[in-house]
């Protein structure tokens, strides 16, 4: 059985599926076949949650949410004995955790984000939009307030969606994300600068970018955000072509942001390219480490579920 339905039903029947195979079961073709961003995000999140078998968003605190079947290992304190007395079946009470954390999603729409390599299942911008949508979904389900800041190429002013816990917030953010397109004159430094000016209360800022900008230009903006007390988490979205430079034949390369063209013989420059690329990224990593900003690498040729997992584990630690 294949496809979304197969993915879900199979997992329900075999809850002890090893996590390693879960990543392999991500099907980019299914994702591409889904029309809207909302469906894609839902596929991503629900497929991921079904695979994990146990939802991490249900705690046992204050507000009752739902019943679920008892699994060996569950705390016996949460068993509902009344239901057991009536139905002769073991059910566990679940509660929804209440938080008041405010999240901002920053989606870099610079020209380089439009790149899509031969092995990628989507362009970098599309992956960024999908992850942003999936995170919004998750955050709103656990009563966190989600907002978004984006910068369109031809507009001077940034587009801000103020954080909110309302269910309608998801639709609002998805609509804005769907409209977002890569533009040559959009810079991440400008976006971060706007964020520093517009975010007043302490928040968690999730940044989706490829970080293909000079480190020196970004440094003041990162520092400003951190000094204002915001927690930042950077999802660096890169294509395999950018990391490995696997091109074979001599060709003319045109820059997506500047339009500059260079005649390149890839075999001759591959090693030098990788070395310069690694050095460039090393600078960013060093800067972000110094500011205690976690960096999560997302490859467009790999499953985004891994990213979701890393984010959730980080979120748990942070809480």
């Amino acid at each position: 059985m294949s496809g979304l339905w197969g993915l879900m039903t199979e997992e329900v029947r075999r809850p002890e599926q090893p996590a390693a195979t879960l990543w392999e079961r991500f099907d980019p073709q299914v994702l591409a076949a889904l029309g809207s961003l909302e469906l894609k995000a839902r596929y991503l999140v629900e497929g991921f949650l079904t695979g994990l078998h146990r939802s991490p968003f249900h705690g046992f605190s204050v507000e009752f949410s739902e019943y679920r079947e008892y699994y060996p290992g569950d705390d016996l304190r949460h068993l509902d004995w009344r239901v057991y007395a009536r139905c002769d079946r073991l059910y566990v009470k679940q509660y929804t955790q209440e938080t008041n954390v405010r999240f901002y999603l920053l989606c870099d729409a610079s020209g380089s984000m439009a790149y899509r390599g031969r092995r990628a299942w989507e362009s970098k911008l599309e992956v960024a939009k999908l992850l942003a949508a999936a995170f919004t979904w998750i955050l709103l389900r656990q009563n966190d307030a989600a907002g978004m800041l984006t910068l369109h190429g031809l507009e001077d002013r940034p587009e801000l969606v103020r954080p909110s816990q309302r269910p309608s917030q998801l639709g609002e953010i998805l609509r804005r994300l769907a409209r977002l397109e890569a533009a040559k004159d959009v810079r991440l430094a400008t976006l971060l600068d706007y964020a520093g000016r517009l975010f007043h209360r302490r928040s968690i800022v999730l940044v989706f970018t490829d970080l293909l900008e000079d480190c020196a230009e970004l440094e003041p903006a990162w520092k400003k955000l951190r000094f204002q007390g915001h927690e930042c988490l950077v999802f660096q979205i890169l294509d395999a072509d950018e990391i490995e430079f696997p091109f074979d034949h001599p060709a003319v390369f045109e820059d997506l942001e500047t339009g500059q063209r260079r005649r390149v013989r890839p075999a001759a420059v591959r090693d030098r390219y990788r070395e310069r690329f690694e050095r460039f990224m090393q600078e960013h990593r060093r800067l972000l480490e110094g500011l205690e900003i976690p960096l999560c690498l997302v490859r467009t040729d790999q499953s985004p579920w891994q990213t979701l997992g890393e984010f959730l584990s980080w979120r748990r630690r942070w809480l």
Binding site: S112, M113, Y115, A251, F253, L256, R262
Partner: peptide, 14 residues
């Protein structure tokens, strides 16, 4: 034969 590429900054010596 044209390749639109995002990381041309690392090939600026070509």
């Amino acid at each position: 034969d044209l390749v639109l590429f995002s990381a041309l900054r690392f090939l600026d010596d070509q």
